[in-house]
């Protein structure tokens, strides 16, 4: 039982990271029909940028973190939309999706060639001790990751539902034509979702890299699981992406512990297939009809 609880908490921690990435995924989909297959690399790169700033500029870690996140949000929030999404979306969803696949490869290989092919230690802002509670060893780092991620998601949910700007963002996502007619700055709202997506990815990167280490290939699994989490939870709901992330994280952790470490990656994929067959709109998603 003690072992199970430890695996459960570890799964919730990685699940919280998947949820951050999955929420960003759903946000940019809702506002701009962008399926970002580079989402995993978006979580991989901020940690590399931060370490590069420490290594090449000699900046203190906290300053490198602030600058690295700011640079990442500028390049992969604003820049991603201007340089890749805006020109490609005119040609349809599929060309844009393929462009993001190309971006993923460029980001991964760029991190390998430009920084390092080896996994690098990444310092943690969170406590790393382990405590024993009723015979169960609990990693404070895992608990802190869950709390920080949930606070970020809660803050985002508050912003989207309780502020005028957040509701304008929802309006721009739900019906951009009507939003435009009402004077809502639709283009600015869409850009805001890209900036939020980059911010969430950067947060996920800073949280997960002390555990996974900073490595160019980290995005492969994170991207895949974030995608699965978004579909399992419901591609059009923030709470769905949160639930999907936590479910995928826990299933992955328990599968590694109790089924097989070799086949752990397959278990969330099986879940994905089941959801697509049984409830294609996802556990919390709403049915959508689109004219093509």
């Amino acid at each position: 039982m003690a072992e199970f609880i430890a695996y459960l908490i570890a799964g919730l921690a990685t699940g919280a990271i998947y949820a951050l990435a999955a929420i960003g995924f759903t946000l940019v989909w809702q506002t701009s029909q962008t399926i970002n297959f580079a989402q995993g690399e978006f979580v991989m790169l901020p940690a590399i940028l931060i370490l590069a700033m420490v290594g090449f500029l000699g900046a203190p870690f906290w300053l490198a973190t602030v600058l690295g996140i700011a640079l990442f949000v500028l390049l992969f929030g604003w820049g991603f939309k201007i340089v890749i999404v805006d020109p490609m979306i005119r040609h349809g969803v599929l060309p844009l999706a393929i462009a993001t696949m190309a971006l993923a490869i460029i980001m991964k290989e760029g991190a390998k060639d430009g920084f390092s092919a080896e996994a690098q230690n990444f310092p943690s802002f969170l406590p790393v001790q382990t405590i024993s509670l009723g015979g169960v060893s609990i990693s404070l780092q895992h608990i802190a990751i869950i709390l920080v991620a949930c606070a970020a998601i809660g803050g985002l949910q508050w912003f989207v539902t309780r502020t005028k700007t957040g509701r304008q963002m929802q309006a721009a996502a739900q019906n951009p034509n009507v939003a435009l007619v009402l004077g809502i700055p639709v283009a600015r709202m869409v850009m805001l979702t890209f900036l939020i997506n980059a911010g969430l990815a950067a947060l996920a990167s800073v949280l997960i890299s002390p555990i996974y280490l900073a490595k160019f290939s980290n995005g492969e699994v994170i991207g895949l699981f974030a995608f699965i989490a978004a579909i399992v939870g419901g591609f059009n709901q923030v709470r769905g992406a949160l639930a999907g992330g936590l479910i995928v994280g826990v299933i992955d952790s328990l599968a590694a512990a109790y089924i097989s470490t070799s086949y752990r990656l397959a278990v969330p994929l099986v879940l994905l297939v089941i959801i697509i067959l049984v409830k294609p709109e996802g556990l919390f998603g709403r049915k959508e009809e689109r004219r093509v």
Binding site: R167, Q174, A179, V181
Partner: peptide, 21 residues
Amino acid sequence: PQGRNIFPELSVRHNLEFGAV
């Protein structure tokens, strides 16, 4: 415009508030 021009998932009050944007 023609058709339904509301945001179905938002409250009636919040829909109304968009008129003041």
